[in-house]
Design a binder for these strands. Structure first.
Lengths: 343, 343
DNA sequence: GAATTTTCTTTACGCGCGTAAAAAATAAAT
DNA sequence: ATTTATTTTTTACGCGCGTAAAGAAAATTC
């Protein structure tokens, strides 16, 4: 396949028999050259395995083909899955995605935005930490770089937000639980990092009121992103104090529920919906691990594919529109109930 | 903090009162300029918020300050955790880590190596897919780029390997299980993607022979990285056929065990070490979720901190040594047993 | 086959920074 | 205060590619 080593575009142009400006044009958009020219260039690429120097390509260019993808916590498989879909679609569209995780730390998130700025990306898909995010840093960043928020909304920031409709999650789980048995109490962190948590609590209260049922919100201590641990500790505390107001528990998210179920098991509570069970537990997110809990978790699922797909498409439109939308777009996808054994 | 916008290093040099070559020297190594000069530059950075153009910095440089980090599957929180530690240490050492996930696909892995090559990284930390990896592509890559393998070893590739000692995992779990009850059978995938799996099976057979016990290896079908699903399906199959040769099961890794435990629960088998339990299950890895299984999983833990720490340090030494070691280094860290409730 | 449109070639400049060499300035040592 | 060692400045070139402009070549239209 190779003959001699090509050092730069000049050399490549000469061996491929095409002028350098045309070759340059090709690499910026293969469709911008005539089909016969494209074929000759691609044959030469195949033969000499040449790739333009990405640093030289980008240094004299205002807008690169890079796309930044930022998630709050990569050790959460939920984001692992989303990232996979996003990465693939970016590559298919001819962009180079760069992946970053804030690892739950606001300073990290800030540093990432700084790094991202110097990468001069064409656009950024940002899932912010939420409550702990440095709002002004994000706001300043969004002014400079075309940004689409996803997963967690921060009012007014970025040109668009794509996520799931928290009300849709909670209304379905509350409706289902109330219809099939005792209405649920709501289990959550006292100071949730993620703004979705607040929306879910409000949706719970709203739904209970609408159904003319008495709401019970249980808030457990704990900060950070070790939700399972927080859920487990909180559940142990509540169970040992026999402080559970109902025998049906709706957790704010699956990771809390995973901890909750673990505590139930350890404390000897049988979870499930038969008469021989002590309590029912349901949750939201359809976390990749939620079907392996014991019992398998009944939960409301994100429309993963739609959220990640639409986030990417929105960013592409944004880039094509020159980085600005007339009005900020907000797209929320509905959840769907996944019936398993826990409730 | 800001006054006027600095466009390039020339301007920055003039406003900071230092010549451009000295400023350039500073950015390549702050310690290489006199303390008083450094202070003046840093004051100016603070004041004008200037950052050199990374593309211009790197285009005319053989060796950048980039470090590539490649993991096989990012939706596995195990790698999420490792990545976090690695990223932080790279940044502390003044490098810019770029994160990539093969998402379980060999073509992805290959593409990542291509991308990485054009990033001209100072070094790469690569956790290969394993059996499915394109060996020749990795070999060619390692010839061009200083590379340290971690997690999965591929014989002879890269300048070093840092990982865990699979024998240490298995010897401890087998010893413990045999000492405290019925000796274990071994539960694994028939065609594991990861080479560690083969080492663990051999270690199991070896240990059983050494203890003069009869080994039983159960291999379940399934390909890909959905280990929990594979473990669950395999367990359901074995349990329904009552084909379990012993009442003590040692899973090759925690993700299989998570699926196994899920199946046990669903099939009504009580897992644990009391007399009122049906079987014991143990495993290897100390996956972040393994303490939230029901019951919590007894497992042999990686020395996460040592593996990721030593991998990074080895890469730094490799970079300082000019990208080559006289002989390929292999460092294996011992596991330690984590006693929980499942065995 | 001539006129028109599209595509390519030639020429040339600039991007922001690395880096080399020689001269100048500063600090440290005697 | 002088010598010596270290650091900085000045000057200058090059990296690999983007890109603009004008003319040449090729494809398309009539």
């Amino acid at each position: 396949m190779s003959e001699r080593k090509i050092r730069n575009m000049e050399e490549f142009a000469s061996v491929s028999g095409i002028s350098r400006p045309t070759v340059s044009k090709y690499f910026n958009d293969p469709a911008s050259v005539r089909a016969s020219t494209r074929a000759r260039i691609e044959a030469a690429i195949e033969q000499y395995d040449y790739r333009p120097n990405i640093y030289a390509m980008n240094q004299n260019r205002q807008l690169t083909k890079n796309i930044g993808v930022v998630v709050p916590y990569l050790a959460d498989p939920f984001f692992g899955e989303i990232v996979r879909v996003i990465e693939r679609r970016c590559i298919e569209a001819g962009f180079s995605p760069s992946l970053f995780s804030s690892h739950g730390e606001p300073e990290q998130e800030r540093d990432i935005l700084d790094t991202l700025r110097s990468l001069k990306p064409a656009g950024v898909l940002l899932a912010p930490l939420g409550r702990l995010s440095n709002k002004s840093a994000i706001e300043a960043f969004c002014r400079d770089v075309p940004t689409v928020l996803f997963d967690s909304n921060i009012e007014g920031m970025g040109e668009a937000f794509v996520g799931s409709d928290n009300y849709s999650f909670v209304s379905q789980t509350v409706e289902y639980l109330s219809r099939t048995g005792e209405p649920p109490c709501f289990f959550e962190m006292k100071h949730p990092a993620n703004p979705n948590a607040n929306k879910r609590r409000r949706a719970y209260l709203d739904m209970m009121e609408r159904l003319q049922l008495e709401p019970h919100v249980m808030q457990v201590d704990g900060t950070g992103w070790a939700f399972e641990e927080i859920g487990r500790n909180g559940a142990h505390d509540i169970l040992s104090r026999k402080a559970l107001p109902t025998h049906t528990v709706l957790c704010s998210n699956d990771r809390l529920a995973i901890g909750f179920l673990s505590a139930c098991f350890e404390a000897g509570y049988k979870v499930g919906r038969g008469t021989d069970h002590d309590l029912r537990v349901a949750s939201h997110d359809d976390h990749p691990f939620s079907r392996y809990t014991c019992p398998a978790l009944t939960t409301a699922a994100h429309n993963y594919a739609s959220v990640s797909g639409h986030a990417v498409e929105t960013l592409f439109r944004l880039i094509e529109s020159g980085g600005r939308f007339q009005t900020r777009e907000e797209t929320l996808f509905a959840a769907h109930l996944i019936m398993r054994d826990s409730a």
